[in-house]
């Protein structure tokens, strides 16, 4: 039951076993591997129609010249893109196309309880490594699995339900390439006033406030896209990515560079499902629970200057009262 079925795209073998680091160590000798370095891929492109190329069957609408013109600035570090998906056949193919434009070193697609054609679609992509979990592993667990398998210096996390143009994704990867450890999506401009916000948004604000980072607004690792540096992943621990707000708390507490780097409207395109609509829905409760875990982390590390001592506490309150009334 608890065994994940791992299928590595491009390879004829189907591996069984838990999602462990084994998959990461793809042997260099394997000739069926299609995950190749960017430079090598360019070479592939030139031998069009040759036996080496394994191409996506979707024909590109852009001319080769156009493609070159739209090339994104290259990164110093290597990029791993981690996509979690759950029955996203409508969008996954197009998302993978956009991701390819970033020229990542690897693309890891974690399929979480997919029963549609998400699996064949991901497998058609020449670069994607597909982790197929036939049974649902739950929210955000896919991210941690993907992170564990990744090797790049920059990790870009995406959801399969939304096609985001490569130019926008580039903001996040570039930020990490330039020294930021956790590059978040800035959702503040898309939010109504606090009085009209939902409980999840309020929880995100409160966590950032409790972390002493009220400037982050509602930005959260719960939201995609976001990018991490390899250093951040090592300090946070890939396992903690299962609970994104806790990972965020750890990032700030460990003094990593956490910044919001750009706005991608993920609210407009977020797929509505049975579980995520209406106030008090299951996903909302899950995320609030995540924030509770994050706050526990904050509380366990706080330095309150001895204020939990009741006598010091009383004296402090006396001083505050006196100060307030000496108008």
């Amino acid at each position: 039951m608890m065994v994940a079925l791992l299928q590595v795209s491009g390879s004829s073998t189907v591996r069984r076993g838990t999602a462990t680091r084994k998959v990461k160590k793809r042997s260099a000798s394997s000739q069926t591997q299609t995950t190749v370095a960017p430079r090598q891929r360019k070479a592939n492109r030139s031998v069009k129609g040759g036996s080496l190329t394994v191409r996506s069957p979707i024909p590109s609408r852009q001319s080769k010249v156009g493609r070159e013109a739209l090339k994104l600035p290259s990164l110093r570090g290597t990029l791993s893109v981690i996509i979690s998906a759950r029955n996203e056949e409508q969008t996954l193919g197009r998302l993978l196309q956009q991701v390819s434009r970033l020229e990542p070193a690897e693309i890891i697609v974690v399929l979480n309880g997919c029963s549609d054609s998400s699996f064949p679609i991901s497998r058609q992509h020449r670069q994607a490594v597909v982790v197929h979990c036939p049974e649902s592993v739950g929210h955000d667990v896919g991210r941690a699995i993907g992170a564990k398998l990744s090797r790049g210096d920059i990790l870009l996390f995406l959801d399969g339900d939304m096609v985001i143009p490569a130019s926008q994704l580039g903001l996040f990867t570039a930020a990490v390439d330039n020294g930021i450890d956790v590059a978040l999506n800035d959702l503040d401009p898309l939010m109504p006033s606090f009085g009209l916000c939902d409980d999840v948004t309020r929880s995100k604000l409160f966590l950032n406030y409790a972390l002493g980072r009220y400037d982050l607004g509602v930005s959260s690792m719960t939201a995609v896209p976001h990018a991490l540096s390899r250093r951040a992943l090592e300090i946070i621990g890939y396992r903690e990515l299962i609970v994104p707000p806790k990972a965020q708390a750890l990032s700030v507490l460990e003094k990593l560079r956490v910044e919001k780097v750009g706005t991608v409207n993920v609210i407009k395109h977020n797929r509505l499902r049975q579980a995520n609509i209406g106030a008090g829905n299951a996903v909302e409760k899950l995320i609030i629970g995540d924030h509770a875990e994050a706050l526990l982390e904050v509380l366990s590390r706080r330095d309150d200057g001895g204020l939990r001592n009741s006598e010091t506490q009383r004296e402090y309150r006396r001083q505050v009262a006196a100060w307030r009334n000496r108008i």
Partner: peptide
């Protein structure tokens, strides 16, 4: 730890 909120269908043991 989660203030009584459920963990949904998460199978945390999948990641070790």
């Amino acid at each position: 730890n989660r203030a009584g909120f459920s963990d949904g269908t998460r199978r945390r043991e999948m990641v070790r």
